[in-house]
């Protein structure tokens, strides 16, 4: 087990290192930040001073070495635009994104699982077919367009919900959250729904496929034969068994939701990390872009690692084959 764990951690570290190199080089390739940052009326000496202060006068390999060195000490540099540590600025925005992702996740489970199970139990019914058709829609609608449409319908035409922003927030454990106030909740609903629709479709399809597989299993037939009510069969025997794959997938998807809520946050002016990333790209704030991507990599690699390790606990086959290999 320890050998397996060590190997997985090693692999994760390699992945992070490769990503760090790619991210740094990629960001380096897109334009010169000084051309965007500095006032066009500035003189050459001021431009030169700014370049030197940002460390952009050094050759690429030196800049990279400095980046790696400070990154190893947990410092991803100062933002060019804000003049403060990039990680701090991102972490300020983290609670907003996390809240959005968690609410979206809850929505996709609470709505997706029942619909999926229903479609799985009655695959040929009109209801079941419409659920499946709906899920295709959820998969294929572009997130940006879908968000604008939600705003148009619910905010502009009906006027039920606000078009964007975060609304009233309250402090909980030093973090500002929206879901505890009525105003905040209203602001949260549309962006969360927009983010959830895709995942919801995923959950529906997963739940349906698994339900169809599970209902043919002997233990379900046996439960039926025993004379248990349909309700009990579905709620206990079917639901329990389909939840394992659903939970696994959602665990992984949570990472991507946190990291890539960008489109939703932009459309709904939600003050999370994704919106920060877009703004930073426009301003070529290199340290902030790099720090954001590195944090994202870290989140996803960590989640994958945890899931893999958990799996090896659940399924000894993985553990054994790895050790042999």
């Amino acid at each position: 087990m320890i050998v397996y764990l060590m190997r997985r951690i090693g692999q994760s570290l390699v992945a992070i290192m490769v990503m760090a190199t790619l991210v740094f080089l990629g960001v380096y390739a897109i334009g010169n930040p000084v051309d965007v940052l500095i006032n066009p009326e500035a003189t050459q000496s001021e431009i030169a001073a700014t370049i030197a202060r940002l460390g952009l006068d050094k050759p690429l390999w030196q800049q990279f070495l400095i980046f790696v060195k400070s990154a190893l000490q947990g410092d991803l540099g100062n933002s060019f635009v804000y003049g403060r540590p990039a990680v701090d600025i991102i972490l300020e925005r983290f609670p907003a994104t996390m809240e959005l992702a968690l609410v979206a996740l809850t929505l996709s489970v609470v709505i997706g699982v029942p619909l999926g199970v229903y479609a799985g139990l009655k695959p040929e019914s009109i209801g079941g077919r419409s659920v499946m058709a709906g899920s295709i829609l959820g998969f294929s609608l572009p997130n940006f367009w879908q968000g604008m449409l939600l705003i148009l319908i619910f905010a502009v035409l009906l006027g039920w919900l606000p078009a964007g922003g975060r609304g009233e927030t309250v402090q909980v454990l030093g973090m500002r959250v929206s879901f505890l106030t009525w105003d905040g909740l209203q602001h949260l609903l549309l962006p969360a729904l927009n983010l959830a629709l895709f995942k919801m479709s995923l959950v529906i399809r997963l739940a349906r496929a698994n339900t169809r597989e599970v209902v043919t299993q002997d233990y379900v037939k046996f439960a039926r034969a025993k004379g248990l009510s349909t309700r009990r069969v579905v709620l206990v025997h079917v639901l329990k068994n389909i939840m394992i794959p659903v939970v696994t997938i959602l665990g992984l998807e949570l990472g991507s939701m946190v990291a890539f809520a960008i489109v939703t946050e932009t459309v709904f002016a939600w003050p999370g990390m994704g919106k920060l990333l877009i703004d930073s790209i426009k301003l070529l704030d290199r340290p902030l872009i790099v720090a954001y991507l590195m944090l994202t990599v870290l989140i996803i690699v960590t989640i994958n690692l945890v899931v893999d390790v958990l799996y090896s606990f659940l399924d000894p086959r993985i553990r054994l084959s790895e050790v042999k290999g």
Binding site: I151, A155, V156, P162, G164, A269
Partner: peptide
């Protein structure tokens, strides 16, 4: 004062009375 950087959502915010 609220920053709404994308134009579409900014117009929507006005139309919605936000």
């Amino acid at each position: 004062m609220r920053p709404i950087s994308s134009t579409g959502p900014r117009v929507a915010a006005l139309l919605a009375g936000d």
